[in-house]
Amino acid sequence: MELKESILELIRKAATDLSPDVEKALNDAYNKEGEGTPAKNVMGTILENVHMAREQSTPMCQDTGSLVFYIDFPVGESEAKYREAALWAAKEGTAKQYLRPNAVDPLTAKNSGNNVGVNAPYFHFHQWDKDEVRIRLMLKGGGSENVGAQYKLPHPPIKAGRDLKGVRKLVIDAVVKAQGQGCSPGIIGVGIGGGRDISYALSKEQFFRKIGERHPMKELADLEVQLLEDLNKLEIGPMGFGGKSTILDVFIDSQSRHPASYIVSVSYTCWAFRRKTMTIKNGEVSYD
């Protein structure tokens, strides 16, 4: 298969075939909700929808999101090759209805109709020393993007100071403000430190971790576990109808900060948590 066609298949899989770790988490959430509750009903509908989308090869959610590519490629290769193939795949994926046209010009309000525009799709390129190519794709929904939040510590309204206790408070604050608007049960990515742009970038890249995958640093892993417990006590529940499952997992990472700044970013993704990885090694393409 040509590169561009392999990327088209990556897009199709991301939009229509929910990853097993997420599906398992949704199943667990379904089992936790009480019989006959709106929450149980919603989780049942979500699971049925996931199965239907996979069988019919149609987008599980009509908001197929913004396309964000993270491409790692070997030394000596050009970015252009990957960019061109991905742009072709985005256009073709739109024509095949794997994707809804989601690139709108803010000045004219015109939709490009094919998901290609200025910084759309967006690319994070990284040259690495491995003899293989890794293309990761996230389809980031707009509703959940709107409930993401960035804070600088200290944050007096909730008495959040410059430490992990402060970080815990503002993640709770962001999730309670989001209510069901981000299509709960959602997944939370947290980036601690860095400037405003790279703080958000760090929080979002966490979404490539698998559900249940804890951070190698004990302090952050403990905070992830603590927050997962805290957030599910809020009883916002699926779609904000009330219930036990508000958040499926919390992924945190940290990076150096400027002495004067303590920026924390909270990214939210809906239950339709669409990210897939494609690897090309010795001419063989595999997907995860």
Binding site: I46, N49, M52, A53, Q56, T58, F241, C270
Partner: peptide, 13 residues
């Protein structure tokens, strides 16, 4: 009326 967010395929059916 609240529909199930994300249930795109099911609702389209």
């Amino acid at each position: 009326f609240h529909a199930v967010g994300g249930a795109g395929t099911l609702i389209a059916n």
